[in-house]
């Protein structure tokens, strides 16, 4: 598991580095920028379909996105915990390496 610690540190650096590297920018979603790109390529294009449901405001959107992450993380934790428990019972001791 020691390896994972290094991997985690590296991933963290990769995520945090841009905050410093591109400081001053707003880190807007790339999909919003795609919208603008399309409008420069095809100024007369109008979207012909609207989202059936749009989260009312940024706060609700954040709520739904965190809900999505939380549900997923919960399942991952459950499954890994289950496997850990099983392997410990099988080996009769703590299986941490």
């Amino acid at each position: 598991m020691k390896k994972n610690r290094w991997l985690f540190a590296f991933a963290l650096v990769l995520i945090l580095l841009p905050l410093w590297w591109a400081r001053g920018s707003e880190f807007g979603g790339t999909d919003d920028q795609a919208e603008r790109a399309i409008q420069t390529l095809a100024p007369h294009y109008r979207p012909w379909f609207e989202s059936i449901f749009t989260p009312p405001g940024g706060e609700v959107e954040t709520l739904l996105f965190s809900l999505q992450a939380a549900l997923g993380a919960g399942v991952i934790g459950y499954v890994i915990g289950l496997y850990k428990g099983r392997s410990e019972r099988k080996n009769g001791h703590d299986s941490r390496v």
């Binding site: 580095l17 841009p18 590297w21 591109a22 707003e26 880190f27 979603g29 920028q33 965190s66 992450a69």
Partner: peptide, 11 residues
């Protein structure tokens, strides 16, 4: 669900 910042200044 994780929008992660990138070096380009967008996520």
């Amino acid at each position: 669900a994780l929008k992660i910042p990138s070096v380009t200044g967008s996520s």
